[in-house]
Simulated scan of single mutants.
Amino acid sequence: MEKLKVGRASLTWLNGGVTHLDGGAMFGVVPKALWQGKYEPNEKNQIELRTDPILLQIDGKNFLIDSGIGNEKLTEKQLRNFGVLEQSRVEESLKQLDLSVNDIDAVLMTHLHYDHASGLTKKVREDEYETVFKNAVIYTSEVEWHEMRHPNIRSVNSYWEKNWKPIVEQVKTFDKEVEIADGLKMIHTSGHSDGHAIIVFEEGNETLIHMADIMPTHAHQNKLWVLAYDDYPISSVHEKEKWMDFGYRKEAWYTFYHDAYYRAVKFNQAGEQTEAIKRERYNYS
């Protein structure tokens, strides 16, 4: 498992599963001739997208950024359409670190789409689900939590009842931002979804920014390259511009949940890559 240290924060990437989605949708109006040189598609024009939660350890607390794609959540048709070649192995990943799901103090949900939230609950019997992280507070923006429970005609396919009903008593919402620990904040941005949030950690001269699905991979560095899946693409552009400029000034690390090639990338003040942590390619069969 890949690791990163930023100040007193330690990050470890877990195995949350993988999807393969249409490259055109993932890069919106950007011509394929431009994006395929940065992120290679397969013969179906799909690109590989991990769904790997990040274990973020600060001050003796275990935080998880998003939850993976889960297990036994998708139908055979969904598994095929979403290109799911492996489902979550979060519990196995934690076990390798001498931890369990009961050791997670909080789950920081950037948003609640199925590919981020399906790992929050698990099936115990047909049509019955229970929470996975029993001792965790689950943070999400107030706007996102409302839409999760009351999706509109566009978002209904992304927000699933089985992902939210078992966790109702654990959820803690925030409006504009919330400080999870000293220097660690969740900030509501909108963009990809109306309630989408990013995660920022600052300590001294070291900065970490998790842009979630506003910048899902290293290939989305361009401020204008936003997803066709975004509900509010103009908001995505504006927030991306704001937080990329902020990060460049800080020479921050940017971390990824979806990237199949990079776990994290650091940029200088000119926006040039100076350091990177590549994802190791594992055989999980």
Rank of each mutant, 00 (worst) to 15 (best):
V107T: 04
L21T: 08
E86S: 08
L55W: 06
I47D: 02
L94M: 07
R154F: 10
Y114N: 03
N135K: 15
G60L: 12
D103N: 15
D105K: 00
A106Q: 07
E91Q: 11
Q46H: 13
H111W: 10
P31F: 13
K61T: 01
E92V: 06
L85M: 09
I69C: 07
G37V: 11
Y129F: 13
Y39P: 00
G119R: 06
L21M: 10
G68H: 02
D103C: 13
V137I: 15
L49K: 05
N71L: 11
I69P: 00
E48K: 15
M148L: 06
A136S: 14
R154Q: 06
V124Q: 05
L94K: 07
P41H: 14
E72M: 09
G83W: 07
D103S: 07
H116C: 07
H150V: 02
G60H: 08
I69W: 05
L112D: 02
G23M: 10
L94S: 04
E43T: 08
V29E: 14
V107N: 00
N135P: 06
Y129S: 07
K77I: 06
H150M: 08
H113R: 04
E72G: 06
T131C: 03
L79N: 12
Y129N: 04
F82T: 00
F133P: 05
G60E: 08
L79F: 04
N81C: 05
K122T: 02
